[in-house]
Design a protein around this nucleic acid. Structure first.
Length: 848
RNA sequence: GCCGGGAUGGCGGAACUGGCAGACGCAGCGGACUCAAAAUCCGCCGAGGUUCACCCCUCGUGGGGGUUCAACUCCCCCUCCCGGCACCA
């Protein structure tokens, strides 16, 4: 045979075929699922790493791949570092899409959901994610949601669950209630052109506001969380310190208007009281004035409309004078009562005192209607404002850095002090007090939907609201329910479900037909992982205690889009469970990492834009390793990732390079001839050894620190490049060193590209489990450079470079730098002022 | 308006506590191998100037100031982009 053919054959054998290699390992891993199982008791330190559980929409997308690639790399790294790792996965499997699917293709939600789960689970396995599937949690199954019901009953007992009439979002086209998060720009998320209406419905609420203060305060403890998320939660909770002050309603003895203000120090400047149009008092004040009533109605209609198109806040301030007066309790002044469209019923008390001199909105309003503007705060003498001359007739003066004037006995006080003292004064005289308000509202969990956890409550004609006894749980969600868009919960049309008997009196009762918000499911699922098959409790306290410790999940990873809802509900739930004695930790998550989005061509991947890259296609074309590695390499994980098809090709090339290097040099490595301690080796071997230890350091440091896996992978690439450069002289490299390089390369790649790593591990003849193989340690001595090239600057400009021993003292460096020819030329004719030497970094000769 | 995060070659991104700007990868260009292509391997690759070439010089991290021997990095001011909150009293 001609030689050519043999060469072609050799080249073919060297080619890396990810499909055959990955299929081989995929099949092996299926046979031993227990390798990823966490130990319930262990002498090793524990580590709980968790990625946010997905909604089983049908197929994974690249955002999932990125999320799980980060978590999987970390889990594998921790295993290799000797930790007892808990790395579970589950399904957030209740929710509206299943009902939509039921309507559009006549598939029962349960069937549709379970099929999706099965498909996505297969995708995850093919991607090689190391999950402990023995702990899988599926929230739509009764063995999980019964504990939602159990928690609900416990909260009801503790007064944390209650029922009240409330205003909700309603999509007329879906004929159902929508969660706040399903309202996008005032329209339904499923129908972008359908304006969401407001309806008043009886709803179940969880009293998250009982924990407002703690939820806010404990954010300070969460220093393992991104600042961004903490800030978002602070904004969401929206704490505001102020005072409540009662204004007497003139002409109606015993009737008060309570206003909320953060600036009680400005109350002597109040020239009116403003009510929100929905304020209860407005109905009384306008009762006998049809004209007024009509004006207020019109105002509310306008507001609704503005809200619908999403430009509330853009509409012009206007108001209606009720003709009635309120009495300022501080100065006995009678001020007119107005109804104004910029006052929000949802915030504070829905009533304010209007101080035009010191509030921009009040100023605008007062000028429009000719209400008085009276200055009661003066700038501090000598301040910028004092120089600028304040004219409150022209513009509001809103500082808290001032002195009270025209304020009776409070005149002369500084604002801060006045706020305190005037609130105390109100309390002493019984017309007010200091108070704190929050933007956070109680959590409305009722949904008029089928595919969710039934709320375990009954309505008895005789006994009223009756909780389902704990022993009757779970309240099973019936199958075979007709899902329509005719409005109301589909469960209300199932007589077998609806009609039951009252456990108190035995008489007829009907069940609550609303189901729970799916955010309930995800608020505590990570505790269930610790004890997924417990039939007597949501989880055992000691088991959960082991995994959560004092601080919570060691590392939680997910998208920032859950920064407020899921992550605030989860914190609330943990605090409730702590108060119930179920857990000891105050917070569920010690460290949180939010990865960026995956975008393509400058936009989020979406079907409508046609820029979707699906994991299945990537796995088929490039292999799971390449898809995973690229998702980590293309950008630091906390930033958005711009997907480039040519980029993943580069990763595929890299994996092939690694593979070929091993194939060509596998035999060289198994015959150790000398030690790898670096003694008496050639400079080239020493250089390889140095690079090896530097690479271990770079990869390890990133796992410990800032998680810039893109630079980890770059470091591994550099090492491979170095080996390629050395390959022509491979026989001069001690076999033991070559083997150490190869072995270490496999270990460093293992968290990122598990398939190739396992293949190479086997190729090296290693017998032990790669998953539990010890993470390589670097030797600082071996990583150290012997000589360093350092730049020589003259007046900060690079002029030359010199090579000196790494441990060279300042004297030697100065001597060499000053003796350097190019430096001499640059310095020539000038006077050396000083020479700055940063050991093994740089020399800067300062001349003039 | 308030809060948080960004802006670095043709592109994604490096430069960790102020010390050689552009690691690594993509794209591009050139070469080797090949009848040829693919694959692979090697080299070049911020802009401008100078040069046969090696070199060398100037400019350069959104814009403008400042601190410093030295600034992508620190300080002040500004522009634009992304995200969150928002007539919040």
């Amino acid at each position: 045979m001609p030689q050519e053919t043999q060469e072609n054959k050799a080249a073919r054998d060297e080619r890396y075929d990810p499909q055959s290699v990955e299929t081989k390992w995929f099949e092996r891993w299926q046979q031993d699922p227990a390798v990823y199982a966490a130990e319930q008791k262990s002498s090793k330190p524990k580590y709980y790493v968790l990625e946010m559980l997905p909604y089983p929409s049908g197929a994974l997308h690249m955002g999932h791949v990125r999320n799980y690639s980060i978590g999987d790399a970390l889990a594998r790294y921790m295993w290799m570092n000797g930790y007892n790792v808990l790395h579970p996965m589950g399904w957030d499997s209740f929710g509206l899409p299943a009902e939509n699917a039921a309507i559009s293709n006549n598939t029962p939600p349960r069937e549709w959901t379970l099929r999706n789960i099965s498909n996505m689970k297969a995708q995850m396995k093919r991607l090689g994610f190391a999950y402990d599937w023995s702990r899988e949690v599926t929230t739509c199954l009764p063995d999980y949601y019964r504990w939602n019901q159990w928690f609900f009953l416990k909260m009801y007992e503790r007064g944390l669950a209650y029922r009240k009439k409330s205003r909700v979002n309603w999509c007329p086209k879906c004929a159902t209630v929508l969660a706040n998060e399903q309202v996008v720009n005032g329209c339904c998320w499923r129908h972008e052109d359908i304006v969401v209406e407001q309806r008043d419905l009886e709803q179940w609420f969880l009293r998250i506001t009982n924990y407002s203060e703690e939820l806010l305060r404990d954010l300070d403890k969460l220093d393992g969380w991104p600042e961004k998320v903490r800030t978002m939660q602070r904004n969401w909770i929206g704490r505001s310190e102020g005072a409540l002050v009662d204004f007497k309603l003139d002409g109606t003895p015993g009737s008060n208007i309570t206003v909320f203000t953060t600036r009680v120090d400005t109350i002597y400047g109040a020239t009116s009281v403003q009510l929100a149009p929905e304020h209860p008092l407005v109905a009384d004040l306008t009762a006998n004035h049809p004209k007024l009533r009509a004006q207020v109605e019109q105002m509310m209609a306008e507001q609704r409309k503005a809200k619908e198109v999403g430009d509330i806040g853009e509409i012009e301030k206007h108001g209606v004078n009720t003709g009635r007066f309120a009495i300022n309790p501080y100065n006995r002044e009678k001020v007119p009562i107005w109804v104004a469209n910029y006052i929000l019923m949802e915030y504070g008390t829905g009533a304010i005192m209007s101080v035009p001199a010191h509030d921009e909105r009040d100023h605008e309003f007062a000028k429009k209607y000719g209400l008085g503007i009276r200055q009661v705060i003066a700038p501090l003498p000598g301040s910028d404002a004092a120089q600028a001359e304040v004219d409150v007739q022209k513009v509001a003066f809103t500082t808290t850095d001032g002195v009270l004037i025209n304020s009776g006995s409070f005149s002369g006080l500084g604002c801060e002090e006045a706020i305190r003292k005037m609130a105390e004064y109100a309390q002493q005289h019984g017309f007010g007090k200091a108070t704190v308000t929050y933007r956070l509202k109680d959590w409305g969990i009722s949904r008029q939907r089928y595919w969710g956890t039934p709320i375990p409550m009954l309505y008895c004609e005789k006994d009223g609201i009756v909780p389902v006894p704990e022993t009757d749980l779970p309240v099973l969600l019936p199958d075979n329910v007709e899902i329509t868009l005719s409005g109301g919960s589909p469960l209300a049309k199932v007589p077998e479900f609806l009609n039951t008997t009252c456990p108190k009196c035995g008489g007829p009762a009907r069940r609550e037909t609303d189901t729970m918000d799916t955010f309930v499911d995800s608020s505590w699922y990570f505790y269930r992982y610790t004890d997924a098959h417990n039939e007597r409790a949501p989880f055992g306290s000691d088991v959960a205690g082991y995994w959560f410790g004092a601080a919570g999940i060691d590392q939680y990873i997910g998208g920032v889009e859950h920064a407020i809802l899921h992550l605030i509900y989860s914190r609330f739930w943990t605090k409730v469970m702590r108060d119930m004695g179920l857990v000891k930790n105050d917070e569920p998550v010690a460290r949180l990492f939010t990865q960026g989005m995956v975008i393509k061509d400058g936009a989020k991947m979406s079907k409508s834009l046609g820029n979707v890259v699906t994991p299945d296609v990537m796995v088929a074309r490039f292999g799971a390793d390449a898809a995973r590695l690229y998702s980590l390499f293309a950008a630091p994980p906390d930033r958005d990732l711009d997907w480039q098809d040519t980029g993943i090709e580069g990763i595929q090339r890299f994996l092939g390079r690694v593979y070929r290097f091993f194939v060509r040099n596998a035999s060289a490595g198994v015959q150790p001839e000398s030690s790898s301690d670096g003694k008496g080796v050639s400079p080239e071997a020493r250089q390889i050894q140095r690079k090896l230890h530097q690479t271990i350091k770079r990869v390890s440091d990133d796992f410990q620190g800032r998680w810039h896996f893109n630079t980890c992978i770059a470091a591994i690439m550099e090492l491979v490049n170095e080996m390629y450069a050395a390959e022509p002289r491979i026989t001069t490299i001690p076999a033991a060193l070559l083997r150490e390089v190869q072995r270490t390369l496999v270990l460093l790649l293992a968290p990122f590209a598990p398939y190739l790593a396992h293949e190479l591990w086997e190729m090296l003849g290693e017998k032990g489990s790669l998953l539990r193989a010890p993470w390589p340690k670097y030797d600082p001595e071996l990583a150290k450079e012997e000589e360093v090239e350092i730049p020589v600057q003259v007046n900060g400009k690079l002029r030359s470079r010199i090579t000196v021993p790494a441990d060279a003292g300042e004297d030697l460096v100065r001597e060499r730098a000053l003796a350097d020819e190019k430096a001499k030329i640059a310095v020539a004719g000038k006077q050396i002022v000083k020479v700055i030497i940063v050991p093994s970094k740089l020399v800067n000769i300062v001349v003039k």
